[in-house]
Amino acid sequence: MMAGIAVSTNINSDNAEFLCHADETLLDVLRDRLGLMGAKEGCGTGDCGACSIILDDRLVCSCLVLGAEAEGGRIETVEGMAQGDQLHPLQQKFLEHAALQCGICTPGFLIAAKDLLAKNPDPTEEEIRFGLAGNLCRCTGYDKIVRAVQDAAGVMRGADHEF
């Protein structure tokens, strides 16, 4: 039964090693083996974005990546966004704009928005809307999410360091 594959990765700047089955998703590894439950399973088919993570600078649905594929990879999850008690500007602006109601989609949106702003620091409203179109939110109608991302983008452009 124990046909585990040994995998070495870096998650949120810490080295992490785990064993997983060949058919086990990275999402299941993060949640069930590593205790990182910020990424959520909303669909398991890559349609909702609630499990979004950044793998080697690429935004992916972790439900569509196998754990074994993360070998040698660098993973960023929502748990790595804040620095100590200092929230990332996106996290802070999501709170200030009430860009969440139930909050289940929030980790995925934060990661997707972080990836978007890394590639396009000054997006238009339309670019934000298309950039976040892979993430489903059923509570907010997206209005406050878009405003939070616009506001955070401004803060990040004005800052003297990278986030």
Binding site: R31, L36, M37, G38, A39, K40, E41, T77, V78, E79, M81, A82, L87, Q91, F94, L95, E96, A98, L100, G103, I104, T106, P107, L110
Partner: peptide, 21 residues
Amino acid sequence: TRPIRPDGVDKVTGRARYGAD
């Protein structure tokens, strides 16, 4: 008034625990 919600920080940091968590 419009203060920040008390469960907010847990929800933007991935700490909040939902049904499957």
